[in-house]
Computed example of a mutant assay.
Amino acid sequence: MRFPYTFTDQMGHQITLPHLPQHIVSLVPSQTELLFDLGLEDRIVGLTKFCIHPKDKVKQKSIIGGTKNFKLEVIDELKPDLIIGNKEENYEKGIAALQEKYPVWMSDIYTLEDSLEMISQIGKLTGTEVKAQKLVQGIALGFEKLRPAQPAIPTAYFIWRKPYMAVGSDNFIDHMLQRYGLSNIFADQPRYPEISPEQLQAANPQLILLSSEPYPFQEKHFAEFRELCPQAKIKVVDGEIFSWYGSRLLKAPEYLQGVIAEVK
Rank of each mutant, 00 (worst) to 15 (best):
L72Q: 03
K93V: 14
Q189N: 01
A203G: 04
K251G: 03
P148G: 05
V236Q: 13
T32W: 07
S30Q: 09
E227A: 15
D81R: 15
D76S: 02
T48S: 04
T8S: 06
I44Y: 09
I139M: 08
T48P: 00
M1L: 02
H23P: 02
S107R: 06
K93Y: 11
P21Y: 11
V236P: 12
I153C: 01
W105N: 00
E213I: 02
Q150K: 13
I83V: 15
I75G: 04
L249M: 15
A132V: 12
P151D: 06
S107M: 07
N204C: 13
S120L: 05
G85D: 11
Q133F: 04
T128L: 01
K134V: 11
K162E: 12
L250G: 01
L17G: 03
N184S: 07
P214R: 07
Y255L: 05
S196Y: 02
Y157R: 00
S183R: 10
L135N: 13
K57D: 02
W105Y: 14
I24T: 11
S196Q: 01
Q199G: 05
G12E: 01
Y5G: 00
P253V: 13
L82P: 00
I185Q: 02
V167W: 04
L38I: 11
Y215E: 04
K251Q: 13
P214F: 06
P18K: 15
L72P: 01
K124C: 07
G142P: 03
Y110H: 15
G142L: 08
S211D: 12
S196P: 00
E113W: 13
S169I: 03
I153T: 05
L17E: 04
I64V: 15
W244Q: 06
L38Y: 09
H19F: 07
K220N: 14
Q14T: 14
L78S: 00
V130I: 14
E254Y: 08
F242T: 03
F172R: 02
A152S: 15
I185G: 01
